[in-house]
């Protein structure tokens, strides 16, 4: 098969470069007046698309009981071993016999792959859209069960960033 090699043949005016240069300058000049894409971060926050994998949360039933049954499927699925669960016998008797008394996620180890969410048989653990939970110490980035439940409280009422951009003060779990 014949291959057609396209070569660039400069036209007469191209040899002077100046028309091309002026065209280029005109392009950059007009860009100055175009609307900018920058989001001014602390005042305005980027709202991630649905399906974004950020901070974890532990879901609750409608009656406020934790959905998690401490089966440790998530901890098993976790590729980075960042989930620590301590199960216990459940104080209630409606078929769910276990519940976690300790549920910790090391957010610095976590790679936000979302495998825990896929592994969970009860839809108890979920990744939320929250991304701005940076902090100064390593200890503060190990989130415990209370924290995870609080993230649920905060994030279950629609996008927190849309609310923050609208001017509502929304704090993420204990200001992690």
């Amino acid at each position: 098969m014949a291959v057609v090699v396209k070569t660039y043949e400069p036209k007469f005016w191209d040899r002077f470069y100046l028309p091309a240069i002026l065209k280029g300058l005109a392009i950059t000049l007009t860009r100055i007046f175009v609307r900018k894409d920058t989001i001014l971060y602390p005042e305005h926050k980027h709202v991630p698309a649905p399906g974004y994998r950020g901070l974890h949360r532990l879901n609750k039933h409608a009656d406020g009981r934790i959905k998690c049954v401490a089966c440790e499927m998530c901890a098993t699925a976790c590729p980075s071993n960042c989930i620590t669960i301590e199960p216990s016998a459940a104080p209630w008797d409606d078929g769910e016999e276990r519940y976690p008394i300790k549920f910790e996620i090391n957010l610095l180890r976590c790679i936000y792959c979302g495998f825990c969410e896929l592994a969970c048989p009860k839809d108890a653990i979920e990744l939320t859209e929250v991304y701005d939970f940076a902090n100064y110490t390593r200890d503060s980035l190990v989130i415990d069960m209370d924290g995870l439940l609080e993230v649920y409280e905060v994030t279950s009422q629609g996008s927190i960033y849309t609310r923050q951009n609208a001017g509502q003060p929304v704090k993420v779990a204990q200001q992690l």
Partner: peptide
């Protein structure tokens, strides 16, 4: 700043 403006930044 002008560099930013040209590159759709601020």
């Amino acid at each position: 700043r002008v560099a930013g403006f040209i590159q759709y930044r601020l």
